[in-house]
Amino acid sequence: MPSRIVTLKLNGAERELIARPSTTLLDALRETFGLTGAKRGCAQGGCGSCTVLLDGRPVVSCLIPVVTVDGSTVDTIEGLADGDRLDDVQQAFVDHFATQCGFCTPGMIMSATALLDRKPDPTRQEVTEAICGNVCRCTGYEPIITAVLAAAEHRRGVPLASAEAEV
């Protein structure tokens, strides 16, 4: 079967691509659109480094033939910041040293974002469950959980650590 034209609402904009049957959503993001924030850590659905939001829900983009999600909404790490202004989850990851090598970070932040969009006041346990598909080999997860909880507090009006520092 020939390639097909696929339309996505990608980070808020209508985008089109020509996809082969074997093109995954991850391939499309990285190779066609140059959005390389989503990573290929395993291509097995096991590491979560390719996590993006599909119609608002976190998915492993490495396992999705892109032609099957024609017409869907896709949000990636590149769509979070407003120009140079980081969004609160990103800023909390910076403030709480939740990154080391950074390879897991985009997927981790997308999973955390999806959680906070659905549950603005998660428990620590809910944070752990939300990121259980995102492998981080560097940090040991603790600073990541702290960062997600801090971002949640920020959404409820508590300033981020960096904001305090600036005062």
Binding site: S22, A43, Q44, G45, V60, P65
Partner: peptide, 27 residues
Amino acid sequence: PLGGGTHLMTRLNDRAGGDLRLVSLRR
């Protein structure tokens, strides 16, 4: 048949093995 792909796609991503036609059940 391709459901969520969480099993089948892991194989297709990693292994050679002939031509395959898929039918997605998503829609």
